[in-house]
Amino acid sequence: MIINNLKLIREKKKISQSELAALLEVSRQTINGIEKNKYNPSLQLALKIAYYLNTPLEDIFQ
């Protein structure tokens, strides 16, 4: 099972779900679904998340 630290990292960087969704060009519901482990992001989306949060991919999804 993948450990998902997206919410923790996003909140630590003081970025809202809506702000991150806008940067990634996805819906806020997509971010919410990823954070609640209801949706697994594509590799492309996971890499974009890591880029915009300036955090290694391995720290977000373990």
Rank of each mutant, 00 (worst) to 15 (best):
M1T: 11
I2G: 11
I2T: 13
I2K: 12
I2F: 11
I3G: 13
I3R: 14
I3L: 11
I3M: 12
N4F: 06
N4P: 04
N4Q: 04
N4G: 04
N4W: 05
N5G: 06
N5F: 06
L6I: 08
L6E: 00
L6C: 05
K7Q: 10
K7R: 12
L8R: 13
L8Y: 12
L8G: 10
L8C: 15
L8N: 14
I9K: 02
I9E: 05
I9C: 07
I9M: 06
I9G: 01
R10P: 01
R10I: 04
R10D: 01
E11H: 07
E11Y: 06
E11M: 12
K12Y: 09
K12I: 10
K12P: 01
K13S: 07
K13H: 09
K13Q: 10
K13N: 13
K13G: 04
K14W: 05
K14R: 10
K14Y: 07
K14M: 10
K14N: 11
I15W: 06
I15F: 07
I15S: 01
I15H: 03
I15P: 01
S16Y: 03
S16R: 06
S16F: 03
S16D: 04
Q17N: 03
Q17C: 05
Q17D: 04
Q17M: 13
Q17G: 03
S18Y: 12
S18C: 11
S18D: 14
S18A: 14
E19S: 09
E19V: 07
E19G: 08
E19K: 14
L20C: 03
L20Q: 02
L20T: 01
A21N: 02
A21P: 00
A21W: 03
A21L: 04
A21I: 03
A21D: 00
A21S: 06
A22G: 09
L23G: 10
L23S: 08
L23H: 15
L23R: 08
L24Y: 01
L24T: 12
L24Q: 00
E25K: 14
E25M: 13
V26A: 02
V26T: 06
V26S: 01
V26L: 04
V26Y: 00
S27N: 09
S27D: 13
R28E: 15
R28A: 14
R28G: 08
Q29V: 10
Q29G: 11
Q29H: 14
Q29S: 12
Q29R: 14
T30A: 07
T30K: 06
T30V: 15
I31D: 00
I31P: 00
I31E: 01
I31A: 00
N32Q: 13
N32E: 15
N32R: 15
N32S: 12
N32K: 15
N32H: 10
N32A: 15
N32C: 09
G33V: 10
G33D: 15
I34C: 02
I34E: 00
I34L: 08
I34Q: 01
E35Q: 00
E35N: 00
E35M: 03
E35S: 02
E35C: 04
K36V: 10
K36C: 14
K36I: 09
N37T: 08
N37A: 09
N37Q: 13
N37M: 13
K38H: 14
K38D: 10
K38R: 13
K38F: 14
K38S: 11
K38W: 14
N40K: 15
N40W: 10
N40R: 15
N40L: 12
N40G: 12
N40Q: 15
N40F: 11
P41W: 04
P41C: 08
P41Y: 04
S42H: 07
S42T: 11
L43G: 08
L43P: 14
Q44G: 14
Q44R: 11
Q44V: 10
L45S: 00
L45K: 01
L45F: 07
L45M: 07
A46M: 15
A46Q: 15
A46I: 07
A46L: 08
L47K: 14
L47V: 12
L47F: 11
L47E: 13
K48I: 03
K48E: 06
K48L: 06
K48S: 07
K48A: 09
K48G: 06
I49H: 00
I49E: 00
I49G: 00
A50V: 06
A50S: 09
A50H: 01
A50E: 05
A50I: 02
Y51S: 08
Y51K: 10
Y51C: 10
Y51E: 12
Y51T: 07
Y52K: 05
Y52M: 10
Y52I: 15
Y52T: 10
Y52D: 00
L53Q: 00
L53A: 02
L53H: 02
N54C: 10
N54A: 13
N54W: 05
N54D: 14
T55R: 04
T55A: 08
T55F: 04
T55E: 10
P56D: 07
L57V: 14
L57R: 04
L57T: 05
L57I: 13
E58N: 11
E58M: 08
E58C: 11
D59S: 12
D59K: 10
D59H: 09
D59T: 09
D59P: 02
I60Y: 03
I60G: 02
F61W: 09
F61Y: 05
F61V: 03
F61S: 01
F61L: 05
Q62L: 13
Q62T: 11
Q62S: 10
Q62W: 10
Q62R: 09
